[in-house]
Design a protein around this nucleic acid. Structure first.
Lengths: 146, 146
DNA sequence: CGCTATTACTAAGCATGCTGAGTAACATAC
DNA sequence: GTATGTTACTCAGCATGCTTAGTAATAGCG
C-alpha cells in the first residue's frame, strides 16, 4: 500500500491534511487584508457587538490563552479595540473598529470561503452535515484502546 | 444568525474546527505512546523502509523545515535514528528503531484513528471520498476576488 | 580543475494550538 | 471586614505550521 496515496489514509489524517491545505489557501487570500484565519473567526464572532475575550474564545472554540494573542494581533493591526469593562475590571471588552467592519464585510461579500471548498466536492451539503455531526456529537469514549 | 452555531459556519471554518477537535482527541491518545499527531504521520511513512527527510516531508505534505523538527523530536524520543547517507552526505537517512516499530504496530493494530471519526458520521465512505477530492483536485484559481 | 548551480538540510522569526502557572478583581463566607 | 474561593486574563513553554535566509555537499559546465 502506497503511504503517499491519500486514498489509503485514515479519516483523521485526511481530515487534518485537507484542513491544513484549505487553511493555507484561505490564509493567502486573507493576508491581502492583513488577516489570518484565526483572526477572521474572532472578527466574525464580533458581528453581533462587543464581547469579552472569554466569550470570543468560546465562540472560536479555542482556549482563552490562544484568543488572548489573536486579539492582541487584531488590535495591533487596527481591526479591534480592547477596553477594560468598567463594571467588572477583570473583563476585557473587544470591539471591532470601522476598519474591522470593512474587512469583514469585504470578505463576507465574497463567496470565496465557501467556494474554495464546496466547488471541489460532489455533494457539499452532505459534507457540511457530516462536519456538523463531528463537531456536535460528543466524543463518547475511546474504542479499542488495548 | 447565531455565530456560535456550527450550522451557520462556512465549509472552510467547519473543516478546520473539526480537524482541530479530532487532532486534539487523537493527540491525547497518542501521548500515551510518547507521540504527537505529526510524529505518527512520519513514523507511518517509514513503514516501507528508511527515507530521507525530504521524502518524508513530501509524504506528510509539510515543508522540509517542519519535518526537520518533527524528526528531531522523534529521534529525541527514541523512535527513529538519523544517519548521514554515506553516498550523498547532504542527505539524512531516517530509520525507525525497534521502539518506533512497536509503537506504530500498537497504534495501527487499534482501529482508533478511523473509528474516532467514522463512527460519528452517517456515511464515512462518502465523507472519505470528498476529502480525497479536496486533496487531489487542484486549486484552480480563486473565484470572486473583487 | 575550478566556478556556478542545484540539492538537502538547518536556523530564525512569526502565527497558531495546547498546558500549567501566576495575578488582579470580584464574590462569598464566616 | 478579613479570609477564601472563583473568574478573567496574561505569561511562559512546547509542538506544529509557514516563510525567508543561510550552509554544506554534490553536480555540471567551461
Amino acid at each position: 500500500m502506497d503511504v503517499s496515496d491519500p486514498r489509503s489514509w485514515s479519516l483523521g489524517r485526511l481530515l487534518s491534511t485537507a484542513a491544513r491545505q484549505v487553511e493555507q489557501e484561505w490564509n493567502e487570500w486573507l493576508a491581502t487584508h492583513g488577516l489570518t484565519h484565526a483572526g477572521l473567526l474572532a472578527l466574525h464572532a464580533l458581528s453581533d457587538g462587543p464581547m469579552t475575550q472569554r466569550q470570543l474564545a468560546a465562540a472560536s472554540r479555542v482556549e482563552e490563552q490562544t484568543m488572548s494573542r489573536v486579539v492582541e494581533r487584531l488590535q495591533r493591526m487596527g481591526h479591534v479595540t480592547r477596553d477594560r469593562d468598567e463594571r467588572d475590571r477583570r473583563r476585557v471588552l473587544v470591539r471591532r473598529t470601522p476598519l474591522g467592519d470593512a474587512v469583514v464585510e469585504a470578505i463576507e461579500g465574497s463567496t470565496f470561503s465557501d467556494e474554495l471548498v464546496g466547488r471541489r466536492l460532489v455533494d457539499p451539503e452532505m459534507f457540511r452535515a457530516e462536519l456538523v455531526r463531528l463537531l456536535t456529537q460528543p466524543d463518547g469514549g475511546r474504542p479499542d484502546v488495548s
